[in-house]
Design a protein around this nucleic acid. Sequence first.
DNA 1: CTGCACGCCTGCCCGC
DNA 2: TGCGGGCAGGCGTGCA
Length: 287
Amino acid sequence: MPELPEVETVRRGLAPVVEGAVLTRVTVNRPDLRWPFPENMAGRLTGQRVLRIGRRSKYLLFDLSGGETLIVHLGMSGRMLISAGTARATPGAFHLPQRAAEKHDHVVFDLSGGARVTFNDARRFGLMDLVATDATDRHRLLRDIGPEPLGNGFDARLLADRLAGRRSPVKTALLDQRVVAGLGNIYVCEALFAARISPLRPAATLAEPQVAALVPAIRRILTDAIAAGGSSLKDHRQATGELGYFQHDFKVYGREGQPCCTPGCPGVIARIPQAGRSTFHCPDCQT
DNA sequence: CTGCACGCCTGCCCGC
DNA sequence: TGCGGGCAGGCGTGCA
């Protein structure tokens, strides 16, 4: 599910409810997701105030008053859903929806003020970890991640540097989180289409104008997707439970066999395997 | 160093 | 209606 736009959508939904609130109770319904939870996670979280929620690549970062940061990755199917807590505890959260417990509710965070945040993840490819806040950037899962594509430092020169020397197809290179942060299968396909670049082209052979086109294409796709609340194929929900709706704006992803939407292009969208994943592209107008 | 297959999980959809 | 196979938004590991 979640690529950068979905994670950012979840972050924006959580922030007004969670920032400033205290974790009054943390319920862990199983001992692990992809990996075991950190030692005594519930105990270390309980009583902490959430100072702010940040995001790095596809990771949510909950900075806590005690000097630790909770790192959360949603994997493929993870959700963070806001609801009202128990009826007795909700005088300040009367406007939030009630939510019955569901299968795969692995961790439940009850907050001062009466809100509840439930982490639900059917496939359990998600993860949680705790790290000293001032060491977050050096965490083994974060330290090698490339530039944020919506940040100021991301430009054609930087991207060209990161693609240089790579013989793999540009599609595969852009999925590598060390090249650029936060892109996944959907948005790489869409960005390459927007920039009219073939996913098959070896990364290092992109012409300068192509790299120059790719940067704003990536930014635009991600920005538009965030504005749409992300893409809901199966699993993605915003923190409010609403669907995202950027899937209706896909130009190539999931559109195998349909006509290319570039005006005047006779092409038909193709699906090809690359590095074990499906790539969607127009063989006619992406070169 | 790069590139790639694999495994981790569950759910869903398709064809038979 | 049931069953097997393939597929799915990610990513770390291990091997060539």
